[in-house]
Design a protein around this nucleic acid. Structure first.
Lengths: 160, 160
DNA sequence: AGATTAACCTAGTAAAATAGTCAACTATTA
DNA sequence: TAATAGTTGACTATTTTACTAGGTTAATCT
């Protein structure tokens, strides 16, 4: 399957955006710092996310990115597709030409698996993930460490 | 995820074995021809499958490989694990150390997906696949072309 | 016994994909 | 107009995959 760091980074970045972009746009630099992702790589990913209308770029000072639509309207499957990772486990792009132009022995097996994965990812929105208890803890941690990092050794208050 | 041609080849080869090894052991050369897989690559895969007791090697003339246990007792998940493809979509081998030693925002999401995939593959045995109608057609086709290839232009009778 | 067959094993390699980097450019706004 | 931040394309290092080449070992047949 095509599901690697690229897709994981994309989903993580979109989540970061969902969390922090309510007040003002979020810069890629912030996301890069908070999520430990290379800035240049994020640029590449967001170029695709923008073309897929998943995010909106705001230029100039105070700019950054915002979600293209509400968090509840964005599912994980969309994000992964946008950065060009196909959720397809077959070797023939579902065409049935896996063995010298004909269907191979395991074609249906991989088709079935692709469906299972797609259904799972289709059913989960950014909003769903944010409700998760573990995620809330992580958000708190990242907010805290952000304050420490940028402002020195003050005790950080978690940013909502 | 780690699911590429390697895992697909392994499952395909095991299926070929399930179909043809009832009467006598099947040589890798036969599988290579029928399934269009490189012989040397098959050797590598079978080295792992043998160590995992999925197959039994029989040396000498008339030798080849047989299934290590009944087709109904071998599931797809086992095969893929045997050739060293982990069914794990996280970036931390499920350890929760995805972001600088701590849990990342999307950890639970990928854990969940890994479970979904594993459950699907766990629930399917070689015997299940062989019952599939499409597979029966493919088997008939491959039996036919095998006869043509090895014996000239006779009309091949499908081997059960 | 010797030839043959086929598993078994080790090492290496070419191509592809992944995961980035770098540098130049454009639009916006203070 | 200077600073900010997005936008784009080309380029590179690393890793994995898929495959090749060459051999050794064990069983069988003549």
């Amino acid at each position: 399957m095509r599901l690697t760091t690229k897709g994981r980074y994309a989903v993580t970045a979109m989540l970061d955006l969902a969390i922090h972009s309510e007040i003002k746009p979020v810069t890629l630099t912030e996301i890069a710092t908070r999520q430990t992702i290379s800035l240049s790589y994020l640029e590449q990913l967001f170029s695709r996310l923008r073309r897929a209308d998943m995010v909106v770029g705001v230029r100039g000072p105070g700019g950054g990115y915002k979600l293209g639509r509400a968090a509840i309207e964005i599912n994980v499957s969309d994000i992964i597709l946008a950065v060009d990772e196909q959720v397809d486990l077959t070797n023939c792009e579902q065409k049935g030409t896996c063995q010298e132009g004909e269907v191979c022995l395991t074609h249906d097996l991989w088709m079935g698996l692709s469906d299972v994965v797609r259904n799972y990812l289709d059913g989960i929105t950014l909003a769903d993930i944010l409700e998760n208890e573990v995620v809330k803890t992580v958000v708190a941690r990242q907010s805290g460490s952000q304050v420490v990092k940028f402002k020195g050794s003050t005790i950080g208050m978690a940013i909502k």
